[in-house]
Amino acid sequence: MNQSCPLPSFGSDQITLGHGSGGKLTANLLDSGVFSIFDSPYLQERDDTATCPLGNESVVITTDSFVVNPLFFPGGDIGKLAVHGTVNDLAMGGGIPNYLTLALILEEDFPIAKLHTILQSIHEACGESGVEIVTGDTKVVEKGKGDQIFINTTGVGTPSPHAQLGNAYIQKGDAIITSGRVGDHGATILAQREGLEISGDLASDTRPLNHIVHGMLEKFGHAIHFLRDPTRGGISSTLNEAATTTKLGIHIVKDDIPILPEVKDFSSILGLDPLYIANEGIFIAFVEATQAEAIIEHLRQHPFGKNAAIIGTVIEDHPGVVVLENEIGGRRPLNLLPGEQLPRIC
């Protein structure tokens, strides 16, 4: 029997979709390119936001681009995402969002009526978040050179006086909290894309998290060590990033993660894992263990925190690795995806 096995080439010369998945390929791309060229202490923080001095004050700043298909889905649309995404990034960085910029890249032929619907949605989302669009830009590309509409928003805010957040504050024993159910947004988008109907009221949970985060920081201050909204790559990516940068281990209990049964079944049928699909309306918090129960109680008072739960702990064992304890008591590492999540054949 032939024992040889062909030598594949896996190094790629081109950008693949996996480079944008928020997983290992994204990290490789940033390491090999961005971080080696731009030698900035702010970038070295590898954060979604930067807090920079400006005159005698500081500003928190972030930017995000939105390319979603479909543009409209149950629970939201690309306009809402464009506001919430940037507002939430600022909130995770301990910022209180004030101003947004809005840049539109439109494909020739895109219906103006749809654009108006999206702009209206942006307007409403700004109202709900308490931010103002203060400047913007519009470009149009030839038919076929874009995909209907791409949106970029940049957000500016002031640092919350109660926040002391960052990887560096994560410590052994910290409790890990999710502010809500995992997977609703990603499952909604995937179901729409596949043309599948899911029973029940599954909808995207996209929403601004700045108010609930601000309330939590005001009350619990430095007991909150680290915040992140687990968007692209899901909660697995967020947890892996934290484990890698802190060189601590993370233990997660699957049964404690709130997931809608519909999302579980849907993912299981499609061969996907809800822990890797995108969220838009929840945050993950690493908090002082002694305060964890009180924080959960507090979050549950807020309409966006009703399903808040403690899902895991920071430990010394298996540094840099996230381990998931499943419903039968078995354990497995919850790794970063090598690229985009692909459904299994069987």
Partner: peptide, 12 residues
Amino acid sequence: FGDMLRIPGTSK
């Protein structure tokens, strides 16, 4: 099927 897409061929 989705999971075939990532599998390396001889060149890609």
